[in-house]
Design a protein around this nucleic acid. Structure first.
Lengths: 150, 150
DNA sequence: TATTGTTATACTCTATAACTATA
DNA sequence: TATAGTTATAGAGTATAACAATA
């Protein structure tokens, strides 16, 4: 092992990737936790805040302010469930769906910039190796462990 | 791109690696910032706190408590510079050098556990690709951008 | 009584600025 | 005056626990 192991490199490059992503979506006035919530709501609309919290592995209390902020901006909305009036169903608004397009563009640009040093083949290899590790380590696809700070 | 891009995978796996590393060195009653400081002091002994702060990209004020804690445990020590009595030279103690052996063991075990799903060849490939990205992105070897939380 | 969502509180970590001592 | 180190203060972010509404 020359100098630093793969585990450290992963943590280092991963933290760098998170930082750059934070900067990039900052241009959309979005924080990483907000982006994570948006993506989950887009992927699985209509879930309660408790259900969302469980999937993100975060206390439900944390979602209140998070949902508040995005709701005030008109990107998501709470709908009361008529059958059980304790629950909200969190969903994207029309504006929210349009906004997700811009987020996806930012994510794609971020992806290209981060792996700019790799060839197409190397990029595919990296993706495969990372997927292998993620699966082995029991990571949930699309769920970032411990959101980076806004 | 099937599902998630490499950038997200990097951030996800990297955060997971940082978490597991935090747990592992926690058994040595060490936090990631402490481990980072120890490693730097071991690699370049005798530097002032200002110089260390500059290399870690952190405000010098943050180092005070960090150095305090490790000094109280007898792992590092401040030595006054006789030529310029404003400066300290931060160095490992004898106990500190012995302790670094245990840290290195923990880091090696962490490395093996994280890449357990890969073959030797795949591990080497991953290391090469990550190094390529780290170099391209201008990351300083051995310096973690934004320490994980204790 | 149990559950969803909310609010209130406390705690951790960090950065900024003010202070001291040496130069 | 300028720099190394320290201390004090304030800020952001998070988690824990208490609360209100509904079941």
């Amino acid at each position: 092992m020359n100098g630093f192991g793969s585990a450290f490199l992963l943590a280092q490059v991963g933290a760098h990737a998170a930082q750059r992503f934070t900067e990039r979506i900052g241009e959309l006035d979005l924080t990483p936790p907000q982006a994570g919530l948006l993506r989950l709501v887009a992927a699985r609309p209509g879930q309660s805040q408790q259900a969302i919290a469980a999937q993100l592995g975060t206390p439900a209390t944390r979602l209140v302010a998070l949902v508040d902020g995005l709701e005030k901006r008109g990107l998501i909305e709470r709908r009361r469930n008529p059958d059980d009036r304790r629950l909200y169903a969190v969903e994207l608004t029309e504006d929210g769906r349009a906004f997700m397009g811009r987020v996806a563009q930012a994510a794609a640009a971020h992806d290209r910039a981060l792996t700019a040093a790799l060839s197409d083949g190397e990029r595919a290899t990296l993706h495969a190796l990372l997927t292998k590790i993620a699966t082995d380590q029991g990571l949930t696809p699309g769920v970032h462990p411990g959101y980076a700070k806004p």
